[in-house]
């Protein structure tokens, strides 16, 4: 039963994203966009998980600004309409995927994807399991770099990001190396 529900959700996300790329009218696009936003708000309330709207709003506004500043050959109203159209497209696309991942547990997604080859399933399981670990490690590295005097404010943010990304990358590569040995040691043979 859970697999059927996951399939329906998955199919809905695919349908929404497919319809976005068939150049729908502005009205149709707005309807899909508003519907997705409402669904994501409902999911946020029911699952008590914070859907991060702010980065999406920033992304949408930047896109809108891009259309207003450039493409000067077209009239302002048309550029505004184009900008809004693209903003809606990207926001709906992101929100629909967020809705799916927020309302479906990783276990359900993996069960639903059981038809995939063994190697791909393992890859997905490792990826999902390592996301929270990587985020946790990022926080730790940030704390370490702060304690060593790294400033993350103002223009120093770029230097700060590099000081986090490099050790994180190094650690993850090392972990991947170790993990591959462990998987083989536990008797795994690829198909």
């Amino acid at each position: 039963m859970k697999n059927i529900i996951t399939f329906i959700k998955f199919a809905l996300v695919i349908f929404i994203n497919y319809s976005l790329f068939t150049n729908p009218s502005f009205t149709k696009m707005s309807a899909i966009g508003v519907m997705t936003i409402i669904v994501s708000i409902i999911i946020q309330k029911n699952t008590q998980r914070q859907v991060k709207f702010i980065p999406l709003i920033i992304l949408g506004l930047s896109l809108l600004l891009f259309y207003l500043i450039f493409n000067t050959g077209y009239p302002l109203l048309y550029r505004l309409q184009l900008g809004l159209y693209s903003t809606l497209k990207i926001t709906t696309l992101s929100l629909s995927v967020l809705c799916f991942t927020y309302s479906t547990s990783i276990r359900d997604i993996l069960n639903f994807l059981s038809f995939l080859p063994k190697d791909v399933k393992l890859l997905i399981a490792i990826t999902f399991s390592q996301i929270p670990v990587t985020l946790d490690e990022t926080d730790k590295i940030i704390s370490v770099q702060k304690s060593r005097g790294q400033n993350f404010k103002g223009l120093n943010i770029f230097k700060g990001i590099i000081s986090v990304i490099i050790p994180l990358l190094h650690r993850n590569l090392k972990k991947a190396d170790q993990l591959s040995i462990i998987i083989v040691a536990r008797g795994y043979q690829n198909e």
Binding site: I106, R107, L110, A125, I126, F128, S129, Q130, V133, K174, K175, Q178, L179, I181, I182, I183, A185
Partner: peptide, 13 residues
Amino acid sequence: MVFQNPDFSLFNL
């Protein structure tokens, strides 16, 4: 074989 760092050894949900 049990490897050195258990943080690196567990990869399932």
